[in-house]
Computed example of a mutant assay.
Amino acid sequence: MTLLLMAAGSGSRYGKLKQFDDLGPSGEFLMEFAMYDALKNGFDHIVVITKKEYIHHVTEQMEGKLPAGIKLDVLAQEITDLPDGVVYTGERPKPWGTAHAVWTARDVIDGPFAVINADDFYGAAAYRNAADFMRAHKNDNTFALVGYTLKDTLSEHGTVSRGVCQVDGENLVSVNERLKLEQDGDIVIDRDSQNRYTGEEQVSMNFWVCKPSIFEKIENDFRTFLADEELAKTSELYIPKIVQDMLQAGDISVKVVPSDGEWFGVTYASDREKAVEYLRQKTTEGDYASPLWN
């Protein structure tokens, strides 16, 4: 089983490259805790998608740490990585988005895989539940979203973007991206759309379980995307949109798998202190060793 970590973001609101911040008690990156939890639950292949200039940084950080038998691929998400026969001559200030990041791994993944953000902490139970799902659905085309409760994913320091899910039983119906969510008394409000939520809704934190069939869909959509000059200038291809299109076309089904754990992220610089304290506490309680890879 493969874990793909997306670590190509720029951290504009955080003030620096948060995916490479030493938040752990012994200077570990946050993504190392994700790797650790995944390996404990049977994952044996780690893929990190980052910028070209950080490949050596990630490789050096992880050198000699992973147990024997664990495969590590560190790949660059590059603007020049386009479908065969496609040429793009416009200016592009940032990467093509999370779906393109996943597509970057098309040549190193040939089985079920989980996708996460490298700058989020998802909790050990989430990897256990994802692994159980992957084993149960190894030979079909069923995807999964590891879901979290909206109220548990907000920041005290500003608005956040979340994919709010419509769910029918255990089946995902749709994911609607909301860009400026924050707590407002007893409710959660999206300052962009003015939509109101109870806070009990399931949201996507970009923890997906996918099958290799997604690579062909991303490539086809990427070709269409690049053919639209306005889209190609500044827009991005997002994983939820790709999955939702496949779902609505009847190509896949998508189950919502409960995370059964606590999530935290480091959207803002002021989130850092809480993250450092949480990891220190978890280490003190014995959930993690220090150094992590003892």
Results as ranks from 00 to 15, higher is better:
278 Y>F: 14
172 L>I: 04
53 E>R: 13
218 I>G: 01
12 S>R: 10
11 G>T: 06
89 T>P: 04
89 T>N: 12
44 D>G: 08
161 S>V: 15
197 Y>C: 10
169 G>N: 07
176 N>C: 14
190 D>L: 06
72 L>I: 01
149 T>Y: 12
289 A>Q: 14
37 D>S: 11
56 H>P: 11
265 G>L: 01
110 D>G: 15
286 G>F: 05
42 G>L: 00
69 G>T: 02
186 D>T: 03
230 E>T: 05
65 K>T: 02
211 K>M: 10
213 S>I: 10
141 N>D: 14
135 R>M: 13
155 S>R: 00
147 G>R: 11
88 Y>P: 05
266 V>K: 05
104 T>F: 02
36 Y>W: 01
95 P>N: 13
95 P>M: 11
265 G>C: 04
194 Q>A: 14
254 V>G: 02
64 G>C: 00
209 V>Y: 09
278 Y>E: 15
133 F>H: 11
256 V>K: 04
164 V>W: 06
210 C>I: 08
202 Q>K: 14
20 F>K: 07
243 V>T: 09
172 L>H: 03
108 V>Q: 08
138 K>D: 12
92 R>V: 06
255 K>R: 12
159 T>E: 06
104 T>A: 05
216 E>N: 12
174 S>V: 06
20 F>S: 09
271 D>C: 06
28 E>H: 03
168 D>V: 01
225 F>Q: 02
257 V>H: 01
34 A>W: 03
231 L>C: 08
47 V>I: 08
93 P>G: 01
188 V>E: 03
167 V>R: 01
84 D>W: 07
281 Q>C: 11
152 D>K: 02
258 P>C: 06
133 F>E: 10
35 M>L: 10
22 D>R: 14
76 A>M: 00
42 G>P: 05
148 Y>H: 08
165 C>D: 08
127 Y>A: 01
189 I>A: 13
289 A>H: 14
255 K>E: 11
53 E>M: 13
278 Y>S: 13
86 V>T: 08
149 T>H: 13
79 I>M: 14
43 F>P: 03
208 W>E: 10
195 N>P: 06
5 L>V: 08
149 T>N: 15
255 K>H: 11
200 E>L: 09
205 M>E: 11
194 Q>M: 14
262 E>A: 15
143 F>A: 01
117 N>M: 05
220 N>K: 13
61 Q>L: 05
27 G>K: 00
67 P>R: 08
21 D>H: 09
20 F>I: 12
197 Y>M: 09
279 L>F: 05
228 D>Q: 04
136 A>D: 12
121 F>W: 02
137 H>C: 00
290 S>A: 11
177 E>I: 15
287 D>V: 15
258 P>E: 02
126 A>Q: 02
2 T>R: 05
146 V>H: 07
165 C>H: 08
101 A>G: 15
226 L>V: 05
23 L>Q: 09
223 R>M: 04
